[in-house]
Design a protein around this nucleic acid. Sequence first.
DNA 1: TTGCTCCTCACGTCACGTGAGGTGGC
DNA 2: TTGCTCCTCACGTCACGTGAGGTGGC
Lengths: 160, 160
Amino acid sequence: MSTRRRVTTRVMVDSARGVFMISVAAELADMHPQTLRMYEARGLIEPKRSPKGTRLYSQADVERLRRIQEMTSDLGLNLAGVERVLELEAELERASRRLEALERRSERMREEMEAELERVRRSFKAELVPYGSSNALVRASDVRPPRRKIPVERDGERPA
Amino acid sequence: MSTRRRVTTRVMVDSARGVFMISVAAELADMHPQTLRMYEARGLIEPKRSPKGTRLYSQADVERLRRIQEMTSDLGLNLAGVERVLELEAELERASRRLEALERRSERMREEMEAELERVRRSFKAELVPYGSSNALVRASDVRPPRRKIPVERDGERPA
DNA sequence: TTGCTCCTCACGTCACGTGAGGTGGC
DNA sequence: TTGCTCCTCACGTCACGTGAGGTGGC
């Protein structure tokens, strides 16, 4: 309680909610406010508006602005390029997600099939075994617990 | 044989082989020859060279030039943008191929598993049949000729 | 010689960023 | 009043395309 330190706190905010006015957003994105207006006019970004008409930028907007900043300043793209690249990156993102999903789905399917196969093997194997010295077939469960992988026929007992 | 018509013919050429000198390539791509040199200096295109040092553009080069032309003229990208877009499109192409391959592989796997499952079911079912009116079980193959792929189970017969 | 190639240099155009200038509401 | 917002207009810079100018080999 003696000394006060500056403490950074974090407020949880919906990343799509408009919270920054243009001067703040511009500073966060390291851009001129007028540039933000220009980008909006070109359709690169769409901040919300307050009832009075003041632009309100969300967290997601600021991130997008930073991505644009990176492309224009670091890579030297013009705005037409930025537009196209953002589109392509979104497509790539979708493709990548589909790939992951398909991989998961495929693996799950494999496992299910393996399980089914095993189940079928067991069902045939476990059900019937020879009993004593006779030729009679009885349920394995009546004799002993089933062991590993010893498939046994039982066609003969089924009602034709 | 009386009148001659102009006939378009097509020569099969490896699309990666350098066949067009700069003036031809430029015309095919609807660009200024100097522009082609500029693009090369920027690393956007790499034509082959003749032993004398003359640039030789391939079919693929010309197609690439057209794609670039489209991006700069129609969409207004600058060259930095073109570069990035070409990269991303290549990535997307790869992702798309992987997706297709995975889909095919997944389908093939499913079919194989189904077949295996069916095979196992059949093998258990087909192998042993009742013989006469007794309880004796005999090999199905001893009773009638074996059908397709019917592995024979004989666990009980093996010397322990 | 003509028409191509190679190269470098320079200029015109256009996109884009930013600043100025004027308005209006907490 | 100060400092923000909104807007439009204009200018400086830079990338890019293209033309000019000079060279050299079929």
